[in-house]
Design a protein around this nucleic acid. Sequence first.
DNA 1: TGTACATCAGTGAACGCGCGTTCACTGATGTAC
DNA 2: TGTACATCAGTGAACGCGCGTTCACTGATGTAC
Lengths: 202, 202
Amino acid sequence: VRINPEKKEDRERVAQELLRVTLRLASEHGFVSLGLREVARAANIAPTSFYRHFADMEELGRALIQGLAAPFIEGWAAPVPAQERAEALAATIASRALSATGEDPELMRFILAEERGAIAGFRQALAGLLSTVSVRLKDAIWSEVPGAGASAEQAAEAILVLILAACAELLDQGSERSRAIAERLGAQIRALLAGAGVKGKP
Amino acid sequence: VRINPEKKEDRERVAQELLRVTLRLASEHGFVSLGLREVARAANIAPTSFYRHFADMEELGRALIQGLAAPFIEGWAAPVPAQERAEALAATIASRALSATGEDPELMRFILAEERGAIAGFRQALAGLLSTVSVRLKDAIWSEVPGAGASAEQAAEAILVLILAACAELLDQGSERSRAIAERLGAQIRALLAGAGVKGKP
DNA sequence: TGTACATCAGTGAACGCGCGTTCACTGATGTAC
DNA sequence: TGTACATCAGTGAACGCGCGTTCACTGATGTAC
C-alpha cells in the first residue's frame, strides 16, 4: 500500500497548522492552559479531527519541540565557513538567536517559557537542544585556549544563558530597543570571554 | 467596628494556605493550568469560600508575587554590615539565592516559570522585583570602579541572569550537584566582574 | 447585665457551559485482479 | 477497462464530568445601648 504524496502533504499541512496555532495561543495564555478543543477551533478542524494527528496535547507539545524548536535552536550554532575564533562564533550565535527571536517570536516565547516551566519533560528536552549550542561554543573556546579546562565550559554555558536572557528581553521590549539589547549582550559576552582567557580582537 | 485580631489571624491563615497550596500545584502543572476549584480542594475549603479571599486566580497570582515572591527576592540583596566590596556582594547574593532555592523550591519554581511565562503582567512584576537586586549590585560596582559607566549595569544584570540560571539548574539537578553549581556560578561571576574592571581579592 | 442588631467567613445547592473522548459514518483515494 | 475492497482524514452526535459563579443561609463574633 503506497501513500499518495498529495494526501500526505494535506495531512502534514493540517498537523503544521495545529503546531503553529498552538504556538500562537501558547504565547497568549501559556501552553499548559491550552485545551484540545481550543486548538482545534483555532485550526478550523473539528475537535474529533485532532485525534487524527495527535493523541493529546502532550504529544503535540513533544512534536512542537522536536519539529519546530529543535531545528530553530540548532540553526543558531550551524557551521559557518571560515569562522573558528571563539569570540566570533559567540557573536554569530548571539546574532542568530536575536534575529530568530524577531522572526518567530511565538516559537521563542514557547522555548523560553517551557525551558523554565512546570513540565519536567519539556525542560529536559529543551535543555538537551540548548546544550548542543553551548557544547559547540565550548569546543571553540577550548581549541583556542588550550589551558582553559572547565572554565571554557563555564564560559560557554554562561554565554548561552545571557543570550537567552537577551532574547527574552527583546521579546518584551519590542524592536525599538533591539540595538541596545544586542550591544549589551555583546559587551557581556566579551567580558565573560576575557575572564575565561579568550583575548579580544588584536 | 473594630476587628478581632484572632479572627483576622484565621482569615490570614486560610489566605496563606491558598497561596502555599497554589505554589505546590503550580510546581506540578504550571500556574496557568490551575483552577479555582482545584486550589480550593487542596486547601480544604469549599469552592465558594475561595471568593472570601480572592476574586479569581489572577488576583491570587498577584498576591503570590506581592506577598511571597517580593520578600523572597528582596531578601537576597538585603544589606549586610561591613560588606561594600562588589565581588563579596555578588557572592552573597548568589549564595542567598541558591540557599533560598533549597528552602522554598516551589516558590523559586514559580518565580523562574512566571518570569519567562505567558502572563505579561507577571513577567513585568517579577522583572521589577529582580531589578532591585541588580540595581543594588550595579551601585556596588559603580562605587568601586568609578569609570565603569554602563558596563557596571551590564555586568550586574548579567550576574543576576547567571544566578537565576544556576537556581533553575539546582531545582532540576537536585542537591547532590549543588556544590558544583555553586562553584561554577562563582567562577562565572568572577570572570564577568574581571571583564567589567572589578579586581578580585588581592 | 441583657437584648437587638451588624459583620463576615464558610457553605451546599444549583446553574449553564465547555471540556475530553467514544462512536459510527462519509467520501475521497488507492489497490487487486 | 471495470468492479470490489481497503485505507484513512474528517466529521456530528452524544456522553459524562468538572468548571466558574450565583444565591441564600448559618453561626460565630463584635457593637450599641
